[in-house]
Amino acid sequence: MPWEQADRFTVGAVDRPATLRRKAVTGPRAVRVPCGSQLKRFFAPSALVLPADASAPPSAAGFRLDQDGTAGHLICSVDAPQDGNGERRYRVRDDRGEEIGSVCRGQVQKRLVQHPWRIEQPGLPPVVARYHWAKGTPKEIIERGVGNVLGSVADSLLSFGAEGGDSSPRPVTWRAAGTAVMTCEWGDDYGYKAYTLLSAILDRRLAFALAVLRDE
Score class of each variant (00 low, 15 high):
2 P>Y: 03
5 Q>V: 01
5 Q>M: 11
6 A>P: 00
7 D>V: 04
8 R>I: 03
10 T>K: 03
10 T>N: 05
10 T>D: 04
12 G>L: 09
22 R>K: 10
28 P>I: 10
28 P>C: 14
30 A>G: 07
31 V>T: 04
32 R>P: 06
35 C>P: 00
37 S>F: 03
37 S>I: 02
40 K>V: 04
45 P>G: 13
57 P>D: 14
59 S>T: 07
63 F>M: 06
69 G>C: 08
76 C>H: 02
77 S>V: 05
78 V>L: 05
80 A>Y: 00
81 P>R: 11
81 P>A: 13
82 Q>A: 12
85 N>E: 14
85 N>H: 08
90 Y>K: 02
91 R>I: 09
91 R>E: 15
93 R>A: 14
94 D>H: 07
94 D>E: 09
97 G>M: 02
98 E>C: 04
100 I>Y: 00
100 I>C: 07
104 C>G: 00
108 V>R: 15
112 L>H: 02
114 Q>F: 01
114 Q>E: 15
114 Q>M: 14
115 H>I: 07
118 R>E: 10
119 I>Q: 03
120 E>F: 01
121 Q>E: 11
123 G>T: 06
128 V>Y: 02
129 A>T: 00
131 Y>E: 03
132 H>T: 03
133 W>F: 13
134 A>W: 04
138 P>S: 14
154 A>Y: 01
154 A>N: 00
155 D>A: 15
159 S>D: 09
163 E>A: 08
172 V>C: 06
175 R>P: 00
176 A>Q: 04
177 A>E: 06
178 G>A: 10
180 A>L: 07
183 T>G: 01
187 G>W: 05
187 G>Y: 12
193 K>A: 11
196 T>S: 13
196 T>R: 13
199 S>Y: 02
200 A>K: 05
203 D>A: 10
205 R>A: 10
205 R>W: 04
207 A>V: 06
209 A>R: 08
210 L>N: 02
211 A>Q: 09
213 L>F: 05
214 R>C: 12
215 D>F: 09
